[in-house]
Simulated assay, not measured.
Amino acid sequence: MTSTSAPTDPRPLLERAVAQVAALIEAVPAERLGGPTPCAEFDVRALLGHLVTGLQDGAQLGETGAVERSKVPTDVADDGWGRAYGAARARMTAAWADDATLERPVTVEWGTFPGAVFLTSGMVLESVTHAWDLSQALGHPLPLDQELAELALGWAQRFLPADRRGDEVPFGPVRPAPEGADAYTRLAAWLGREVA
């Protein structure tokens, strides 16, 4: 499966992506929470908060079609990030369980799209990208799903072309990836991460 178009039902891909993130979160030792990530604006703790908030916002879109940004959780214990992410994941799954949500328009800051397109270009792409960030920050504790990264790279190239950076697009210029780099490294470079 290498098409860059949104799948008819992206929920199985989303489940794979969030399951991968959940496994990485379980691998975070408390002493690494203050450590840096390749996403310069986040240390590990802030990235975990961003991931939880992203699922909460995605769930809100599934529930209502619009979102009022969730507050990043500030009361999660060092050993509670897995539970916080699990609760947000369960809410997200429930919010998108009805097939009708895939066709229903959702409105986000970059436009209005059918739910299936949002899940693909928003939630799956975000989860896969931040899985790489978290894996890098933790020293690669688990193998990553390369097929997900190939799909996400295709979507990123389609929805976030190289000439569409800056202003309200929160990605830096495309960076070079080393020859023979895996799909995650190429995705990270496409989204402006330093991968060398």
Rank of each mutant, 00 (worst) to 15 (best):
T8L: 15
P10V: 13
P10K: 05
R11Q: 07
P12I: 14
A17F: 09
V18S: 10
V18D: 07
V21C: 14
A22H: 08
A23Q: 11
A23W: 09
L24M: 08
E26I: 15
V28F: 11
P29E: 02
P29T: 11
E31M: 06
E31F: 11
G35T: 12
P36M: 03
P38G: 15
P38T: 13
F42G: 06
F42E: 00
A46M: 11
A46V: 07
L51W: 03
L51Q: 04
G54M: 03
L55Y: 04
Q56T: 12
Q56H: 04
Q60W: 03
E63C: 06
T64F: 10
G65M: 01
V67I: 08
E68M: 09
E68K: 04
D75S: 12
D78G: 15
W81F: 12
R83K: 09
A84D: 02
Y85G: 08
Y85V: 11
G86L: 05
G86R: 00
A87T: 10
A90Y: 06
R91Y: 06
M92G: 07
M92T: 09
T93H: 12
T93W: 06
A94Y: 02
A97T: 09
E103A: 15
T107F: 09
E109V: 15
W110A: 08
G111S: 06
P114Q: 04
V117D: 03
F118L: 06
L119P: 06
T120K: 00
S121K: 00
V124S: 03
V124G: 05
